[in-house]
């Protein structure tokens, strides 16, 4: 279980402090598939980075299974069971896909095991396993490898930041299947996916709408989804955007 208590975050914007996360409190229960959605610039990635320890909150506390992890390093949080797939995956000169999957799994897994993670994200393993994770990979390939690293880590709490971005239609089906699988097998685990895709929202237990650094809506999928796919939400997000523009 992950708990955020009164989390705030500001960033320096041309010498002016900008409030990006505004006093957010929320609980992600075990065995839950939560999707965070909301307009661009709403603070979703920032919140995910705060959970992974990449950004330090200005104030507030985070608890993982009751333990205060606010001051824990990225490494210690990873070891405590938090996994994070970046919205913009990082490229490495020299490190191969196999190297990365081995690092992710935390042990010297067999090539066949590493290949199985690649197959899961729809990459033909033998074509990719020895490739360098460098700029020769396409955006979509890189994105899938990023997802595979989190699968290989098998974390207690997995956070995926817009995993569908740049993924083609055929693979999108595959992605949905991955999340459905994870969803079925989660036990004592939780998954947070940041997404704008209705089909991903559709498989959520819980939906959180984050806009302008605050939780605009949250609740069970059946309640929230109709609200945000109807005219209501379109208006809501436009209003939020309008507000941004006026500022």
């Amino acid at each position: 279980m992950l708990e955020l208590k009164n989390i705030s975050f500001t960033a320096d914007n041309d010498g002016e402090e900008k409030e990006i996360i505004k006093d957010i409190s929320l609980t992600i229960d075990d065995d839950k598939f939560t999707v965070i959605t909301g307009p661009n610039g709403g603070g979703k990635s920032t919140l995910a980075k705060i959970i992974a320890g990449i950004q330090k909150p200005l104030s507030g506390h985070l608890f993982l299974d009751g333990q205060d992890i606010t001051d824990m390093s990225i490494t210690d949080r990873a070891k405590a069971g938090i996994g994070f797939a970046f919205q913009q995956p990082v490229r490495f000169k020299g490190l191969t896909v196999l190297d990365l999957l081995r690092i992710a799994s935390g042990k010297t897994i067999k090539v066949s095991e590493a290949c199985s993670y690649l197959s899961e994200v729809g990459l033909c393993a033998k074509d990719y396993i020895n490739r360098e994770v460098n700029s020769s990979l396409s955006g979509g390939e890189l994105k899938r490898i990023e997802i595979a690293t989190v699968l290989a880590r098998d974390p207690k709490l997995a956070v995926f930041d817009e995993p569908e971005a740049g993924i083609d239609l055929w693979s999108f089906q595959n992605l949905i299947r991955i999340f459905e699988n994870m969803r079925k097998t989660v036990s004592g685990r939780s998954i947070i996916v940041i997404s704008h895709q209705e089909r991903i929202l559709n498989i959520a237990d819980e939906i959180i709408v984050l806009a302008d650094g605050a939780i605009l809506k949250r609740g069970p999928k059946d309640v929230i989804l109709p609200e945000i796919t109807g005219t209501d939400s379109a208006v809501t997000s436009c209003e939020m955007l309008d507000k941004e523009v006026r500022k």
């Binding site: 992974a52 990082v90 191969t96």
Partner: peptide, 21 residues
């Protein structure tokens, strides 16, 4: 940062990056 989210310390991450490079 990426390698640290995979559980490596900063120093281990550095080593991996240099070895690969």
């Amino acid at each position: 940062t990426k390698l640290m989210t995979l559980g490596l310390t900063e120093q281990e991450a550095e080593e991996q990056i240099i070895n690969g490079f």
